[in-house]
């Protein structure tokens, strides 16, 4: 694997993770639990789509085969997608969406803060711009986890169920492979093992505050680094890609 190939794959991983998460979040638009929250979650989806677009643009550039970010988004199959499994999980109820978001925001804030120091200027630039956004996202998701955990019995139960469902997919966020090894050596990628202890600490504090119990001994689901996903992703792509695939020569 050349560094260019590694960087292309790394950019796809980050771009796809943002794109698929935003695609999921945008399913809430117009259907939120109340208007202010509908607007807030849409705003978060917009930030994450924007980041995904920038990352896929960069992926297309690093690939150097004349493809665009739209070619990458709309003309790859699920086996060629590298989004983290946690992002493709169905939204479920609002508690599950929020707790998924909290786990990801906590990871993302640490990750993009580190990535902003990358030797790759484009990645560092995208990351620097994202820090402010993710800080707000994290404040939003953490405050709702706390509110649900300390709200009503129903909100607590829903939150705990959501956490139980999403938890097995969180560990994969820290998984590294030969792409990471190569790019860490070049000062481009973030060493994810450095982020894990702090993430665990912050999340366990959040869960404690919300009276939640992390499911014990859960097996960590993995596969996305190799393009292996669950059954949900191909449906997400079928919906998202339908129009460009129906009109492959069209410009929009």
């Amino acid at each position: 694997m050349t560094s260019q190939e590694a960087l292309f794959n790394y950019n796809l991983r980050l771009g796809d993770t943002s794109l698929i998460l935003a695609q999921r979040l945008s399913e809430w638009t117009g259907h939120g639990p109340f208007l202010e929250e509908d607007l807030a979650l849409t705003n978060i989806a917009l930030d994450i789509f924007g980041r995904g677009k920038a990352l896929l643009e960069y992926a297309a550039k690093t690939e150097g085969k004349g493809r665009t970010e739209d070619d990458l988004a709309f003309f790859r199959n699920d086996r060629e997608y590298f989004n983290a499994l946690i992002t493709e999980q169905p939204n479920g109820d609002y508690a599950k969406t929020i707790v998924r978001q909290a786990l990801i925001d906590c990871f993302d804030l640490a990750f993009y803060s580190e990535l902003s120091k990358s030797k790759d200027e484009t990645l560092a630039g995208i990351a620097a711009k994202s820090i402010k956004e993710i800080t707000y996202h994290k404040r939003h998701s953490f405050s709702w986890v706390n509110r649900f955990g300390n709200g009503t019995e129903e909100s607590f139960n829903r939150l705990q169920n959501g956490l139980n469902e999403i938890w097995p997919y969180a560990g994969e966020l820290f998984e590294m492979n030969e792409v990471d090894a190569l790019l860490i050596k070049e000062g481009i990628a973030v060493d994810l093992s450095m982020l894990k202890a702090n993430w665990e600490k912050e999340i366990s504090q959040l869960l404690a505050k919300a009276n939640l119990v992390a499911p014990e001994g859960t097996y960590v689901q993995t596969g996305s680094r190799k393009g292996l996903h669950g059954e949900h992703l191909s449906y997400i792509l079928a919906e998202m890609q339908s129009l460009p695939r129906m009109h492959p020569t069209a410009k929009w």
Binding site: T29, T42, L46, F49, G50, K53, L56, F74, M240, L243
Partner: peptide
């Protein structure tokens, strides 16, 4: 929104629907 045919079109539409809200 989930079927917008380009990433730019998706951002524009999502922002528009948010404006309506």
């Amino acid at each position: 929104i989930t079927r917008a045919p380009s990433l730019r079109a998706k951002l524009v539409l999502l922002a528009k629907v948010q404006d309506e809200g």
